[in-house]
């Protein structure tokens, strides 16, 4: 258990007349080495939830624990925790500021006051992991393409060597090619570097093939926390929350209701293709 939420509530501007409840009664355990997807409609509290995970926001009531230590604790070293729980915001390329790609990625490790050769090793490793070509390392980050900028920004967080990497809509505004590149980087980080990933998205389509567990948020509380196959059984309820199941899952459910003997729990296009071929071959 690397992160734990215990009865967390969060209210925006509690003293003013415009106060609004952003999170209510959140109980959640994040286990090491698991690839999570956090799904919810706009305004469901996803971004507020993840900002609790590294202490950028403190809960109005309840507790967030990192390895059993409360983030509210006076002895909690938030700087250390923020390096262990890496948070990549939406459009992270907007936070780039240094004169070179290399220096920008080095910002995090420098803040951790690491020795110079350690910083150098981490920067190089992070840039290679995110697939940023060595030829642009000394270029200005502002000259890069949108997809490249975003990978540099993700490398900036990775260089702190987090155990958990949280990404808020990392594929927003990218073309399909850029989207797949980012998602494949995440998959590699998860399988090879054993990093726990929490991927925030509003699109089931994006995360279905990658996530081990899906957390569904609706109106500030957690509706479901389960494996993708189990989650997609709730197609009706998800639709009511403004979410959808992947298109292939929808297609196969309809085929089944028309009397085709297809299996349940299919979530990717290639699985669906195989299953339809199998059924057709039999028929």
């Amino acid at each position: 258990m690397i992160l734990e939420f215990k009865d967390v509530n969060y209210i925006y501007d509690p003293d003013s007349t415009i106060s609004s409840v952003a999170l209510k009664d959140i109980n959640l355990s994040i286990r090491e080495g698991v690839f999570y997807a956090l799904i919810g409609h706009t305004g469901s509290g996803k971004s507020t939830l993840i900002q609790h995970m590294n202490g950028l926001i403190q809960p109005t009531s309840g507790e967030v624990l990192y390895k059993g230590m409360s983030l509210r604790d006076k002895n909690a070293d938030l700087k250390m925790i923020r390096s262990r729980v890496g948070l990549v915001f939406q459009y992270p390329e907007h936070q780039l500021f240094e004169t070179t790609v290399y220096d920008d990625v080095a910002f995090g490790p420098k803040n951790l006051k690491l020795p110079k050769d350690e910083i150098d090793a981490r920067v190089k490793e992070a840039l290679i992991l995110t697939g940023v070509d060595e030829s642009v390392w000394q270029n200005s980050p502002f000259e890069l393409s949108g997809g490249q900028k975003r990978r540099v920004a993700i490398a900036g967080v990775l260089a702190m060597k987090p155990e958990v990497l949280i990404l808020d809509e990392p594929t927003a505004g990218l073309d399909p090619g850029g989207r797949d590149e980012i998602l494949n980087v995440l998959k590699r980080l998860h399988s090879e570097e054993k990093i726990t990933i929490i991927l925030v998205s509003h699109s089931m389509e994006d995360v279905a093939g990658y996530a081990d567990r899906i957390i569904v948020m609706n109106k500030g509380h957690i509706e479901y926390e389960d494996s993708p196959v189990q989650i997609f059984r709730h197609a009706e309820e998800l639709k009511n929350m403004g979410l959808s199941v992947p298109q292939v899952t929808d297609v196969l459910t309809r085929l089944k209701s028309k009397g085709w003997p297809v299996k349940d729990g299919i979530i990717t296009v290639s699985e669906a293709a195989d299953e339809i071929m199998r059924v057709l071959g039999k028929a």
């Binding site: 900002q51 948070l87 915001f89 910002f107 803040n111």
Partner: peptide, 13 residues
């Protein structure tokens, strides 16, 4: 506010 938080997440204070 957003940029401040993003840099704090990278260990800035």
């Amino acid at each position: 506010d957003k940029i401040m938080k993003a840099q704090m997440a990278r260990g800035a204070s």
